[in-house]
């Protein structure tokens, strides 16, 4: 990961902009009923190994900031909703998902899980700027 960030740094002009955007595994995805703005009826966590990978990515970004290759200009988060016709379709989606936990943590009884369902996930991003007078050193 640090290698990839160093490559990004290398191909950027001075004061060029680097964008790192990733699903935010620190926040559970929300399952909403009937619409993308409907009531939250469940949550979906992130698999443990994926969280560990995300932690490594965070460390890599912190590393290039610490080494003053970049400085952070801005951070933010956006939300993205994925529609599912019914619970079966959602379960199929989760069965072989690489990030999400395999099952929904339902917050309401089965009778109140109205469809369609919308899985709303957080995507976080950080805008970094390449320092013009960089101090590139080995990782």
């Amino acid at each position: 990961m640090v290698d990839a960030l160093q490559e990004a740094h290398r191909i950027l002009v001075d004061r060029g902009v680097f964008v790192d955007a990733r699903p935010d595994s620190r926040v559970s995805a929300r399952v909403r009923a009937t619409s993308a703005r409907g009531r939250v009826i469940g949550t979906i966590g992130t698999q443990r190994l994926t969280k560990m990978d995300d932690t490594m990515s965070d460390r890599a970004v912190r590393d290039v900031l610490r080494r003053k290759l970049f400085h952070s200009r801005r951070r933010g988060r956006l939300w993205h909703a994925i529609p599912f016709e019914d619970i079966g379709e959602l379960n199929d989606y989760l069965t072989d998902h690489l990030r999400f936990s395999r099952r929904v943590q339902w917050l309401v009884p089965a009778a109140r899980r109205r469809t369609p369902l919308f899985v709303e996930r957080a995507v976080r991003f950080e805008i970094l700027e390449k320092k013009s007078n960089d101090g590139l050193t080995s990782a």
């Binding site: 990961m1 290698d3 990839a4 960030l5 490559e7 990004a8 290398r10 191909i11 950027l12 002009v13 001075d14 060029g16 902009v17 680097f18 964008v19 790192d20 955007a21 990733r22 699903p23 990515s57 890599a60 970004v61």
Partner: peptide, 20 residues
């Protein structure tokens, strides 16, 4: 991403979306 065959200082913006 780890070994880009691209020249130094050749881009104004580099995006890693769902890449790291």
């Amino acid at each position: 991403a780890q070994s880009l065959r691209l020249p130094d200082a050749s881009f104004d913006v580099v995006i890693f979306s769902w890449t790291l």
